[in-house]
Amino acid sequence: MTFDYMAIWDNRDILIDGVLTTLLVSTIAIPIGICIGVVICMMRISGNRMLRWSSIVYIEFLRNIPFLILIFLVFYALPFYGLRLSGLTTGFICLSIYGGAYFAEIFRGGIQSVSKGQFDASKALGLKYGFYMRRVIFPQLYQYIIPPGTNIALTMIKESSLLSMITVAELTYAAHDVNGRTFTPVETFATIALLYWLISTIFLKLTHILQIKFGAEDTRDDLTIR
């Protein structure tokens, strides 16, 4: 069986546009998701019962349903209530809020991992809540949140493939497009797999730099069996 490279090469424009759209959606949704995560996390740990309760509802709803169902709800069901969004807009919004729920829990886990004594010392010195969260607690969070955080971001990049189901012309959609024209599922989907793999690998390399910068590398000698 020969590998029909030309089928792919001839349609490279479609695939490249797909890659660019995937990157566009991810690059915007991940930072927004992180911001949402910070806000939701602060609500989650606040003393105010309403804020806490709202954040729990938000997290539970978004974490416990499949991403695909979420985008179907927004894209197909919301128009019945008067809100018709484009596929791309739906993609931005859904991916951001979905990631936000996970980031919120990661940040909360990180805050709880910082030793209680740090909070005691901060309070004992008379530091205000906002100040010590920013200057004492947050700097100590990086080692706890960067590994799971990069995991979620990576998941978001891959989940963006589901946006193909609501007409967003990202990479998976492009794959179906090319396959539809050329009837070469082997070559097409193999290429897509490679492209996703490249995107993910480059992303992980970048986050590795981030990890080193913030001292969160996960290289521990004592975890290897020798």
Binding site: S115, G117, Q118, D120, A121, K123, A124, L125, G126, L127, K128, V136, P139, Q140
Partner: peptide
């Protein structure tokens, strides 16, 4: 916070800010 700033405290585990 203002009141606490007038009361100093030292802990068994030191609780220095490591960063």
């Amino acid at each position: 916070d203002k009141i606490r700033s007038e009361i100093g405290m030292c802990f068994q585990q030191f609780n220095l800010f490591p960063h």
